[in-house]
Computed example of a mutant assay.
Amino acid sequence: MAGRRAAAGGWIPDQHGAWAMLAVPYLAGTLLAPRPGPQHVLLFAAWLLGYAAAFHAQQWLRLRTRGLRSARRHARPAVVFGAAFAAAALPVAAAYPWLVAAGALAAPFVAVNTWFAWRGRERALANGLAAVLPACGMLLVAARLGGAGLPWAAALACLLYFAGTVPYVKTMIRERNSRAYYRGSVAYHAAALAVAGCLAPWLALPFAAYLARAAALPGRALKPPAVGAVELCCSAALLAAVVLLF
């Protein structure tokens, strides 16, 4: 583990939950599309590179605002990832100009995340929720890119799950002693289960499991790697359910 961190040189963002949130909706939209193709690979690369560039730019801003010299270590990754993002995004945007409008819709959410980074409040609940919306919206982008319509129900299913991970993970780590967060997380997951059942009856099965883990796991002193492993399984179950049911 330490060797891999050293090899990455601090360039790869260590927000593990973010990678699942970026990948699952995009992959679901691609798999739901009738004509997935090379354009999906190129846009997926741009999507991940854009996230890495934004992450380092926001970290640079956060640390620079506080006058910390450590901000410099984020400058080069931000520039390199930004250039790589442009190289991947420009060809696919030229072929599909409507992607520019889709990117413009995501821009306000990126601005919100940047504001929270500038204020040093990246762990705020609102900041996490602001990141979830465009990530789940990428399901619609990937589906349309492959010739599908706009599978709103599938995107909503992803939104229900990933929005719930924001308060749930807090109950496992930073807010593990907060009864208010715990009650809010369980209440949210109960509501999400009801909505998921309306979207597709079989979708209630994974969401019942999500509710069970939100109710049962907080307070059990699980370490972050174990929490991450559980969420990886939950994300894989979501991807399978969305592709099979929609």
Rank of each mutant, 00 (worst) to 15 (best):
R64M: 11
S70D: 13
A54D: 03
A54W: 11
P91V: 10
A45L: 15
A33P: 07
R76S: 11
G67M: 05
V80N: 02
R66C: 06
P97G: 09
L49R: 10
A52C: 11
R72S: 11
R64D: 12
G37H: 03
L63S: 06
L61D: 05
P36F: 04
V92K: 02
G50L: 00
P34K: 03
L31I: 01
F44Y: 08
G29V: 07
A53E: 08
V41C: 04
R35I: 02
L63P: 01
Y96Q: 14
A78Q: 10
P77Q: 09
G67T: 13
R73C: 10
A53L: 07
R69I: 10
F44D: 02
T30A: 13
A86F: 02
G37Y: 08
Q59M: 13
H56G: 07
R66P: 05
G67Q: 00
A33I: 13
A93I: 12
W47Y: 11
L43V: 07
L90R: 06
A84T: 04
A57K: 08
L49V: 09
T30G: 00
V80F: 04
L99G: 03
A83G: 13
A71H: 13
L48D: 00
A86V: 13
T65V: 14
R62H: 11
W47R: 13
V92P: 10
A52L: 04
Y51L: 02
R76Q: 12
R35E: 15
A54C: 09
P77C: 08
P91H: 05
A33D: 14
Q39C: 03
A86R: 00
L43K: 02
Y51T: 01
A93Q: 05
L49Y: 05
A52T: 04
L31C: 12
H40N: 00
S70V: 13
A57Q: 10
A33C: 03
A84D: 01
G37I: 03
L99C: 01
